[in-house]
Design a protein around this nucleic acid. Sequence first.
DNA 1: CCAAAAGTGTTATGCTTACACCCATGC
DNA 2: GCATGGGTGTAAGCATAACACTTTTGG
Lengths: 237, 237
Amino acid sequence: MPNQQRQPAVYTYEYPRPSVTVDMVLFAYLENQLSVLLIQRGGEPFKGQWALPGGFVNMDESLDEAARRELQEETGAGNVYLEQLYTFGAPDRDPRGRVITVTYFALLSADEALRMTIHGGDDAHDARWWNMYDLPELAFDHGRILDYALQRLRWKLEWTALGFLLLPQEFTLSELQSVYETVLNEPLDKRNFRRKILSTGVLEETGNRREGDHRPAKLYRFSAKAVELEQARRRFP
Amino acid sequence: MPNQQRQPAVYTYEYPRPSVTVDMVLFAYLENQLSVLLIQRGGEPFKGQWALPGGFVNMDESLDEAARRELQEETGAGNVYLEQLYTFGAPDRDPRGRVITVTYFALLSADEALRMTIHGGDDAHDARWWNMYDLPELAFDHGRILDYALQRLRWKLEWTALGFLLLPQEFTLSELQSVYETVLNEPLDKRNFRRKILSTGVLEETGNRREGDHRPAKLYRFSAKAVELEQARRRFP
DNA sequence: CCAAAAGTGTTATGCTTACACCCATGC
DNA sequence: GCATGGGTGTAAGCATAACACTTTTGG
């Protein structure tokens, strides 16, 4: 920040206050795997272990804004589906002191995930995508957070048609099905899946086809209002 | 607190920190109304307006513990269904400064609600139950919080059999139905309702009957594991 | 015996599930 | 022409929704 003295500013309060952070669970579907972005910690505590990206909430921004800013800073990704997940605040979750973290979960389209450049942040050794089903040991309580995020993602795909958020703008129904199968971790019937997804009305044909090794597949996009529509269905959250 | 100096302790930090509070939405079913407990503010800002009960999170307690403590302090109620709702943190939601609030929602059995004594807290003028469908103007963003809490409660009753949490230990099916009708704000078919609730297996007859003006009704209680069972059904949250 | 709430079954409808074969293309 | 993934329909079972009358008690 410009115009700031070298000597650190000091803020004093009559009662102790916790720090508040946002931590992000970024999901993407890369190489047929459900992937999560993790940062390798460069400093203590948990040096060398992997953790969720995140950071402090600034005093002049809302929680949602803080999450978007972190996302922007660490990945450059802008247009991303984001929702608040849960707030974790056990007194001993960070050995350095009381830190309450508001967690968010984000679904990145494959377009975004490929385009973006990952910046781990200041004290990060490394940053990369991990297969959700083959994670390293995690710092802090981030393992629990990921469990919870996966639950929420599964619930979302079971009850809504929002799975396309993890795909590129144009995709085939088989690709969409394999997203659902990967996330829900169970095989789905092809005919039933197609009927169900198409009946929601959130998809429309683009008219293009995916040319490939075999019979070309129709490409779909989601209709602009799909996200709203799906969310408006009176289901929590 | 004993053993503390008159002169306020001072806590200093290198960066500014928000305050963190928990605010509680306490639902009860009183006199055939869905009721919420509100506190009338004794000081500025929003002096005289009504607000959700709540308070600061202590440094040595988890968020859940803070919520239970507030509940205990303000109502004396102990054995209560409690779950985290959402975290609100717009920078201007409290004119006194940055306050992030983790909200909880609680379902009080009629037993608890009647037994308890309401303590508004230090700077409260008054504290009482309000009809959820006829609320006064609310302080801060508490109106939004209540809207969200009602949504969550409705969702819960639509997808689970947890409505009995708002009733006394023993209750009739008609009483339970009227809880559902009040919360969901729509009439329900008596036969379908009974079949559906009984098929979940969370209720059992006590063998007693409610004697009254007319034909006595069988009394039910929920089987001990009902709450777990219902929550275990893989449905968010 | 009358008023008032408790209690009870059946049918139609739509949704979910299970299941197997032909089609279009690249090589 | 064959290997590969794309694409399609139907029947059975299940859950949901609509609907009206009898039962039991108190007064």
